[in-house]
Structure formats: structure tokens, C-alpha cells
Amino acid sequence: MELQVLRSFQAVAEGTTVTEAAAEARITQPALSRALNRLEEEVGAELFQRVGRVLQLTPAGRVFKEYADAVLDSYDRGLRAVAEVVDPDAGIVSLAFLHTLGTWLVPRLVTGFRESSPQVQFELHQNDEISLAQHLLDSTADLIITGKDPAHPLITWRRLLVEPLWLAVPARHRMAQRHRIRLAEVAEEPFIVLKPGYGLRSVTETLCRQAGFSPLVGFEGEEVETLRGLVAAGLGVSLIPASSGTTAPEANPDLPIRYLKVTDVPATRDIGIAWLASRTLPPAPRRFMDHALQATAASRTSTAAGS
């Protein structure tokens, strides 16, 4: 069994046509079809069934694909590890992170890291809280930067910083001229929130419960900038992080919003970095993790001193 045949099997199993997979492997379509037939003979079961003009995995094919994926992933990680031993200044960091961190924290960390490791390349993925943990479990990311400890026995998590959250209200809101507010004071107002599965959604629900109420959901979005826009339109209020990681959100003349400090509950969220506990990180991801912890150490220290 050749690795290239496994890669072609994987590609066809994920929706690539045999013709396209053959082109990627630089062989003819009949040659790839024969190779896949030999693979089925070696496995001892049909791996594909034709449904119309499309090949779909059989039950045996679905089982075999799990192991084929693991073999290819292990082989690719082995190649990476050897390459980084040969050239320790190079390498690849596969990093997945929360959508809300793509505007400030991740660019800041990547830029700082590349100053000392300019040859390292990055594979970046954005996702919600639940999907981030899956990136680690599926070995599609070396590291994740997430809003809370995944609390999974296979994942190790370290806090990077504590990010303040602010109550965003429309500029014409009855509380807009204030600087501070108790979250309980807006218990009857609609909340503009992210969809379930996003870390900021669960933090919002937890803080509202601590304030003595369940939030009345007025809209569920997928981007924090959408939340800001709908708050500016007067459709509700929202708990929002600072867009640049500063202690207070920056004013935007295009968005008539006021940000109020919440005083009756601890309006913050943890931001941390995590990796698969059972896996030894390659040199480049390990160096990036150390850089992320060191770069945010001052923030962690100042937060601890102020608490």
C-alpha cells in the first residue's frame, strides 16, 4: 500500500472526483481507479459505492478512512518534525483561534513571534469555542487560543490574559450618559448575543445569571462586529470585549455606541492557549506557545495586582 494511494483515497472520500484526484497525483484516471481497486482487495472490503455519478464511502470505507487519516497525519507530522530538526529556525505553526481574537491578539502575537523567527510559516483557522477543541482532537491544529479552559482530559490549557467585557448600549439609550452600570439594570432589555457554541455567548449567559436574570435574546449573530452594529441601530444591548485588547473599547464615530463598565458582576473572560496533552509539540509551535505566554505575562501580572 502506497501513501499516495491513501492520499487519493482520502481525497475521493472527502468529495474529490477520481479525475481530480488523479490529476493531483499526476497519474491517469484509469490508473488511479485500478489503484483504488487494489486497495479494496488489500483491505478485503468495498470502500466506495456509486450513487448516481458520485462515489460515496461504504460503512467499511468510513471505518477505514479514520485509520487512513491517522496514518497520513502521523506521517506528515513526522516529516515536519524531521524538517525542524534539520532546520530548527523554520517550521509551521498550525493555530486555531476565536473569531474575536483575530482583530488584535493573534496578529499581535504572530507579529512579535516572526520578529525572531521570520522563516516560520502559519496555518491559521478561525472558529467557535466548541470547534476549537475539536481542531486539537482531530490534529488539525497544534495550538488553539480560546476563551476558556476546554476542560477536556486530553487537552492542556494555560491562561494568557483576562479580558474585560463592557456593556454596549445605543448612543440614545437612557443609560448612555453614564460610565458605570449594574448589569441587573438592563435585565428587561433585549440582548444582542452570539449564537450558542461561541464562548462569548456562554460568558454573557453566566454573567446575567450571576446578576439575577436570564437574558432576553433579541438577536443571535456570528461576529462581534455584527453585535456592535445592531447595538448601534438601537436593537438591544450587548456584552462586548474591547476590539483591540485595551482596557476600554475605542470609540468609533461610525457606530453610535456607548460602553459602560459593569460593576455588580465580574465582567471579564479568560483567554488561554491550549494543546493536546498526549502530543509532543514540534519545535516551532512550542516556541510560539512560549512566546505567547511571555508576551502576555505583563498583562497577567497587572490583572492579578488589580484584583
Score class of each variant (00 low, 15 high):
Met1Trp: 12
Arg7Lys: 15
Phe9Val: 05
Ala13His: 01
Glu20Arg: 15
Glu20Asn: 10
Ala22His: 04
Ile27Ser: 10
Ala31Val: 01
Leu32Thr: 06
Arg38His: 06
Arg38Asn: 11
Ala45Asn: 05
Val51Ile: 14
Pro59Leu: 08
Phe64Cys: 09
Lys65Trp: 00
Tyr75Arg: 13
Asp76Asn: 14
Asp76Ala: 14
Gly78Tyr: 01
Ala83Leu: 13
Ala90Trp: 02
Phe97Ala: 12
Val106Gly: 10
Leu109Tyr: 06
Gln119Ser: 15
Glu123Lys: 15
Ser131Asn: 15
His135Leu: 12
Asp138Ala: 14
Leu161Asn: 00
Leu161Cys: 05
Gln177Thr: 15
Arg178Ser: 10
Glu185Gly: 08
Val186Phe: 03
Pro190Trp: 07
Val193Glu: 10
Val193Asp: 04
Val193Gly: 01
Pro196Tyr: 04
Arg201Ile: 01
Ser202Val: 09
Val203Met: 07
Thr204Glu: 08
Thr204Asn: 07
Arg209Ser: 11
Arg209Ile: 01
Phe213Asp: 04
Pro215Cys: 13
Leu216Met: 11
Val217Lys: 09
Gly218Met: 07
Leu230Gly: 05
Val231Gly: 01
Ser238Tyr: 04
Ser238Arg: 08
Pro241Met: 04
Pro249His: 08
Asn252Met: 11
Asp254Arg: 13
Val262Cys: 05
Thr263Cys: 05
Thr263Tyr: 07
Asp264Ile: 10
Asp264Met: 14
Val265Ser: 04
Thr268Pro: 03
Arg269Ile: 00
Leu276Arg: 13
Thr280Ile: 10
Leu281Gly: 09
Arg286Trp: 09
Ala292Ile: 01
Leu293Gly: 02
Gln294Arg: 15
Ala295Thr: 07
Ala297Glu: 15
Ala298Pro: 02
Ala298Ser: 08
Ala298Thr: 03
Ser299Ala: 13
Thr303Gln: 12
